[in-house]
């Protein structure tokens, strides 16, 4: 019964996201019949990867009833350090760079994980603190200088410009391949490993998980470390996508967009339920909204309001659907 309910809930929520997506596409298409052309599709496809990579980690965190608002600063710190390495060591291999970004992110995430799992600091407080602290470190490490576009190697920019599949002007970039890899790893972790099962158990009922002998602290620590690692990788992808890394703007406010994508994608903020395809749908929806806003002539000043509203809508949908299903099952039984 219980899992039946959860399943019903998640299919309903994903259907809701798809309806929202179609509504946005339809609105933009009515305004401009060229909306679905290659140029806009490419913008949407380029918008998704960063969001999806960070979103996978954020989903794992939210599944355990946690939250990580420091991901934007983690992205910025990993991005600026790897950017400076590229600047100072011209021949550095881009994959080594990505690996370093991942490692830096993992360390920062592990720090969050340590504060939360062992020192018992609530996730929102711990990561709010490191949101500031990591951003401060970005300025300290870079001395306020940005990594300029001519310091980013061509091989890295190539990840954005080219990709394995090109159909009629639409490019599936290498960035998107990174996102797919991150999604597959996350899906495998959740579906095929014991840690994945533990993540769901902790989110569904932390006390029961502890009593059942699940290593709650260890799993929590791992989850934040993975979240940080993905954010660190995204920092390097950011350098590829935008061609420069500015200490003030790289990743600033990105946590909000990521959390919006994850919760509109059906991940429950109370933990314990959420899927990789759902989050990918959420990323697609936010990417489409972003490009549609420009088409609809709504300028950038609206962005913050829109992302905030998306989170609110998702929350209200969740609580509404839950109540409705609760009533249904009461009638049924």
């Amino acid at each position: 019964m219980r899992s039946d309910l959860a399943k019903k809930l998640s299919t309903l929520r994903e259907a809701g996201t798809i309806v929202l997506l179609l509504a946005v596409v339809l609105a933009a298409w009515t305004k401009d019949h060229h909306f679905l052309e290659a140029k806009n599709l490419n913008s949407i496809l380029l918008w998704i990867p960063l969001l999806a990579v960070v979103g996978m980690g954020q989903m794992l965190v939210i599944l355990t009833r946690g939250i990580d608002v420091s991901v934007g600063s983690t992205m910025g710190l990993a991005g600026i350090i790897v950017g400076m390495l590229f600047r100072d060591h011209a021949g550095l291999n881009v994959f080594v760079g990505a690996g370093i970004g991942l490692a830096i992110g993992a360390v920062l995430g592990a720090f969050n994980g340590g504060l939360i799992a062992w020192l018992k600091i609530p996730p929102i407080i711990a990561t709010l603190g490191t949101l500031s602290a990591y951003r401060g470190l970005v300025f300290i490490v870079s001395k306020g200088d940005q990594v300029a576009s001519n310091d980013i190697p061509d091989a890295l920019v190539n990840w954005t410009m080219n990709g394995p599949i090109k159909v009629g002007g639409v490019t599936v970039s290498w960035l998107l391949v990174w996102a797919v890899v991150a999604s597959i790893i996350t899906a495998y972790l959740l579906k095929q490993t014991r840690t994945g099962r533990d993540i769901f158990s902790i989110g569904s009922n932390p006390d029961a998980a502890m009593l059942r002998g699940i290593p709650v602290r260890k799993v929590t620590f791992i989850v934040y470390t993975i979240c940080g690692a993905f954010a660190g990788l995204a920092g390097v992808l950011y350098a590829s996508r935008y061609g420069f890394v500015n200490p003030g703007s790289a990743g600033t406010g990105f946590e909000l967009i990521v959390i919006a994508a994850v919760v509109i994608g059906g991940t429950n903020v109370f933990g314990g339920s959420g899927t990789v395809p759902g989050v990918l749908l959420g990323c697609l929806l936010l990417g489409t909204i972003n490009v549609a806003l420009a088409v609809l002539g709504i300028d950038e000043t609206w962005q913050k309001l829109v992302y905030g509203l998306v989170i609110l809508v998702a929350l209200i949908l969740d609580s509404g659907v839950k109540k409705w299903l609760g009533k249904l099952s009461e009638v049924g039984s």
């Binding site: 939250i67 608002v69 909000l256 959390i259 919760v263 903020v269 913050k304 309001l305 992302y307 905030g308 509203l309 989170i311 609110l312 929350l315």
Partner: peptide, 8 residues
């Protein structure tokens, strides 16, 4: 979560 959303 609510106040994170309304913050934005």
């Amino acid at each position: 979560v609510v106040t994170l959303a309304t913050m934005a």
